[in-house]
Design a protein around this nucleic acid. Structure first.
Lengths: 149, 149
DNA sequence: TTTTGCTGTAAAATAATAAATAACAGTGGG
DNA sequence: CCCACTGTTATTTATTATTTTACAGCAAAA
């Protein structure tokens, strides 16, 4: 497969909303910034909506954040978009007749869970507000205005 | 793409070597345990060899660990197998004419780097010896012997 | 109340990456 | 000199992500 960039794109969408409060943001407008197609943006927004991070009304091009930016973490976005997909993947097709194969994978699971935990703990400390703050610094350096296409 | 299980399989291979010291382990024998094909195992071993984790001689079916199990970390394996592949992936195809898109991704990079760091830090604390120790506990519970197929 | 533009959703097509497979030159041991 | 095996590359297949297409239904404007 390709590598999933859904988390990045979801963060992009939420930041875009936060940076354009009150604007009439169609999925097409957002898609231009992400440089993708409107249906994909709507799919992302659908997941974010179901997770309670975003509010929108069918047919009405005015999606808004469901919470303040400092109340939305990167982990919230990850859960919304990727569910419980792990960052490291086990091989679940080892030989079931081989005790080594089976139990090595069981052992690895414990350690993968630990790694997942520290990654998620870190994600839970990063908010959309943090991302926006960092964005503003970068944008300042790059002399960009946040209303450009 | 499929999800990569190379790290899991590499750990499997190294653990298998550690658990069968002195045995004549052909790539075919190891492949049986992982339930895959010998060429794939040889590819993994090639990467592990280049990273200095494993020693083998062409044509000679007796690969051995290049270091003690407590001197090989999960991070060593990850580097050997995945190089500097990140666990989270940015969208590098956003609209370059959109300041928001460009700079949001730059901001995300900082945070992704942090998440990568905590994950790798954790990986660096987990050794092949730890995995083997945990394996033995699991294997004990499951009443398996480590010499079965 | 009709029209228009948009959303929400699903299905099908395409793209990217991983793993499986096949092939073969070359090594070491018998 | 054989033989079994490794190390390596190239090709094919499988799996997942993204793109594309399509369309029913809502909201606002006319």
């Amino acid at each position: 497969m390709k590598y999933s960039t859904k988390l990045s794109d979801a963060a992009h969408v939420l930041a875009f909303l936060a940076l354009h409060p009150g604007a009439a943001l169609t999925s097409e407008r957002i898609a231009e910034s992400v440089q993708t197609n409107p249906a994909y943006i709507r799919q992302l927004m659908s997941a974010l909506r179901k997770a309670g991070l975003l509010v929108s009304v069918k047919g009405h091009p005015r999606p808004t954040l469901a919470k303040e930016p400092d109340g939305i973490t990167l982990l919230d976005m990850y859960r919304a978009i990727e569910g419980d997909k792990p960052i490291l993947h086990q091989d679940t097709h080892t030989n079931p007749d081989c005790g080594v194969g089976v139990n090595i994978q069981l052992a690895l699971r414990d350690y993968y869970d630990e790694i997942q935990k520290v990654a998620e703990d870190r994600m839970s400390t990063i908010t959309l507000q943090d991302i926006i703050d960092t964005y503003r610094k970068k944008a300042g350096v790059n002399n960009e205005t946040e209303v450009s296409a």
